[in-house]
Design a protein around this nucleic acid. Structure first.
Length: 687
RNA sequence: GCACCCGUAGCUCAGCUGGAUAGAGCGUUUGACUUCGAAUCAAAAGGUCGCAGGUUCGAGUCCUGCCGGGUGCACCA
């Protein structure tokens, strides 16, 4: 188990007392004891609205009614004797409001010197969770929609790890799909290139227009090519035949086209990983679709699906000759079939089928495994592995991948239906594992605001202009490339840094600008909840003011600068005094006096907010919603900025008050930094 | 047609398993740098939480029905 924080411990004790008291006083067994934070600090630090619930239960059990306030009064003594509680009040219609011993709690929180290195006790012993994210088709440069996926997935990974979980990160590579085929069609039929030509071209490209950028444009040209130059025209069956040929050759393998496709796709994967590393996003393993095919994962899954009666062969009707999985997810109509086709009448498997096989492997239910070889090593030594179907290439040093207890798939909510099919198929094959082991971590798309389209020089129809957003389209080359956006953010941040810190070296300035750019971008993508469509707007995304990453970073930097300038002796004396309050009642009384003063409530509110970090991380992990943590980080930064504005720490003359201010600033600095790190945002020394 | 998601301040969005007087950012108006950094802070204005019922001691939150918007329902991935 993870080391419990001071605050969570107190919560647990209070809940237990409520449970006992309800049992002893009213003979009622409570399953859940809701605990809430009162709207204002004058109403206490935590509140239990449990008397209302008990009033109802007592009436149901005995027929006699008791006033909630009276019930709360009876429960009160049980809470008052908990260590760390100063007093308990009954308020409103029957709330039990608990007030903590501020001096004691501050001292305890201050002494938790663990910050970001807090060891989650033996995560190795925890059941493995797998998070799959990024999953970009390897045929063109990444755009901001892909970034939302990767940043969301990566933040979630960090949140799980902060909560003490063991996590494996996978990035699925669809290297044999239609989109790769399209780019390959471009090289062969539009450019007239063979593998050697593509290699030479790749070598000759300028750094600011690398291979993935080239393919971005080429892919858009292929889209036009299929439609004979008219973006809104019909697709030409003759041209589509070229795609089918290429796709077939890729799937078959062991030929020149497949080699070309392999070069293109893996070069693009390299580009994607480079882009993602700019944002601090890394992976453990890259499972590839080519291996799912060549190592016959599908055949194994197919046999089991047939044996279990999960799928059936259609002999008549529209789906004659296909293997389908019946579903009741929606009703079938003339236009739409209710059943999901897994094997086409020509014998080939659909995406959903392959995904079922892959999901079974991820859960350790398939009974087959990939071979693995190293793909690349990050500067700190962390290695990413890629799958291979060639046993001779297998590196025995490879860790054991797959076999997760819970698998989170970070995938666009537009794929909810397919994900539901996959989940149900797995649950039908392995009822002991069930549907809950497969989690679709769905999120809404990133679209473009009309203003963003204008800035990109995209012509909008009357109709589109009236809409709140316009969907991006890789096929049309319509979108904001990830690296372009990061470049713009870095340029903007560099300008701000230069204006403030002319004394830094070029290298230092660029490093700080990079941290700010990453902070801005990651926060921008995380501040929205998952089911909110992001209408991308340049002005908003490039802003460093208001609810942004740099705002949060700035608060932490200011806190840091206090400690850079604070006399170490003063700091040491303050720490000694605060810790002494844990043992010495007189010292504790001195601290209590500070909290009882005019600004006491305001100071305490900040302490309680900072104390809530673990709770928020746990909640973000359970809800799989990093936005909760992002909102919290902003709230904490905002509260700190207010504190910073109202109190002079270094110049404070009252030694006791100064000690309290120092302890609070230190606590908030540590908590804010940890919250930001858990979102993948670092805090520079200066900015 | 069916399924899922969303309607909260001028705009963009929060609102944890139902809880006390519905909150932020942007924008608007007005103030605060001789101070540990103004990428900051403060104040003002801004709301029938889409509409109508229901459950509950209590509903922005849960249920039903409408209205409005988005997405999906491929022998694409």
């Amino acid at each position: 188990m993870n080391t419990r924080s001071t605050l969570l411990n107190l919560h647990a004790q209070l809940r237990e007392r409520v449970r006992q008291a309800a049992q002893e006083q009213f003979n009622i067994a409570l399953e859940q004891i809701p605990l809430e934070v009162p709207p204002r600090v004058e109403l206490g630090d935590v509140a239990f609205p449990i008397a209302f619930e008990l009033a109802k239960r007592i009436r149901q059990a005995t027929g006699s009614s008791r006033a909630p306030r009276q019930i709360a009064d009876i429960l009160r003594p049980a809470l008052e004797t908990v260590e760390g509680v100063e007093r308990v009040e009954v308020a409103g219609a029957g709330y039990l409001n608990v007030f903590f011993d501020r001096a004691r709690l501050l001292a305890e929180l201050f002494s938790e010197k663990r910050s970001s290195t807090r060891p989650a006790a033996e995560p190795e012993a925890r059941p493995k969770r797998i998070v799959e994210h990024t999953n970009i088709n390897p045929n063109k440069a990444a755009h901001i929609g892909h970034l939302r996926n990767a940043v969301l997935g990566d933040a979630f990974v960090r949140i799980l790890r902060a909560a003490g979980e063991r996590v494996e990160v996978q990035n699925y590579i669809d290297n044999t799909g239609v989109q790769v085929a399209d780019t390959v069609v471009g090289f062969i039929h539009l450019e007239g290139m063979a593998l050697s030509d593509v290699r030479a071209l790749d070598q000759s490209l300028p750094v600011d227009r690398p291979f993935d950028y080239y393919c971005w444009d080429l892919y858009a040209r292929v889209g036009l090519f299929y439609r004979n130059g008219d973006p809104d025209g019909p697709e030409d069956p003759e041209k589509l035949r070229l795609r089918a040929e290429v796709l077939h050759a890729i799937e078959k393998g062991d030929n020149e086209i497949a080699e070309l496709a392999d070069y293109v796709s893996m070069r693009i994967v390299e580009c994607h990983l480079k882009t993602m590393e700019r944002l601090g996003i890394r992976y453990d393993v890259l499972p590839r679709e080519s291996e799912i095919l060549h190592l016959h994962f599908w055949e194994r899954a197919f046999e089991r699906l047939k044996a279990a009666g999960v799928i059936r062969y259609e002999t008549e009707g529209r789906n004659a000759g296909c293997w389908v999985m019946p579903t009741d997810l929606h009703l079938g109509t003339e236009e739409h079939e209710a059943d999901k086709i897994l094997v086409r009448s020509n014998g080939t498997v659909t995406y959903a089928g392959k995904d079922i096989a892959y999901q079974l492997w991820k859960l350790g239910l398939l009974g087959l495994d990939f071979y693995y070889k190293p793909f690349r090593t990050y500067p700190d030594g962390h290695r990413v592995w890629v799958t291979t179907s060639d046993a001779r290439e297998h590196d025995p040093a490879a860790p054991k991948f797959g076999g997760g207890t819970i698998v989170y798939n970070v995938i666009d909510s537009r794929q909810s239906y397919t994900q539901e099919v996959v989940k149900r198929a797995v649950a039908a094959l392995a009822p002991e594992v069930g549907a809950d082991a497969s989690v679709h971590l769905a999120y809404e798309m990133v679209a473009l605001s009309p203003a963003a389209c204008e800035e990109l020089g995209i012509e909008l129809s009357e109709e589109d202009r009236a809409r709140p957003f316009v969907e991006m389209s890789g096929r049309k080359g319509l979108g904001v490339k990830a690296d372009d956006l990061i470049d713009q953010l870095e340029a903007g941040a560099l300008g701000e840094v230069e204006a403030r810190h002319a004394d830094l070296t070029e290298e230092e300035k660029r490093a700080v600008a990079h941290e700010i750019a990453v902070g801005a971008l990651r926060y921008f993508l995380l501040k929205w909840t998952r089911n909110s469509v992001i209408a991308f707007d340049f002005k908003e995304a490039l802003s460093f003011d208001g609810e942004t990453g740099p705002y949060c970073q700035y608060a932490a930097v200011r806190a840091g600068s206090i400690f850079r300038k604070l006399d170490p002796e003063v700091r040491e004396r303050a720490a000694t005094m605060i810790e002494d309050a844990l043992r010495n009642g007189e010292t504790a009384d001195l601290l209590r006096r500070v909290f009882a003063s005019e600004s006491g409530d305001e100071l305490w509110t900040l302490v309680m907010l900072a104390a809530r970090l673990e709770e928020v991380i746990a909640q973000a992990a359970t809800a799989a919603e990093p936005a909760h943590l992002a909102k919290y980080a902003f709230q904490l930064a905002k509260a700190f900025n207010l504190f910073y504005h109202r109190h002079r720490i270094i110049g404070e003359e009252d030694a006791v008050k100064q000690a309290v201010l120092i302890a609070i600033a230190d606590l908030v600095r540590r908590r804010l930094t940890e919250a930001l790190n858990t979102l993948g945002i670092s805090v520079p020394e200066r900015m």
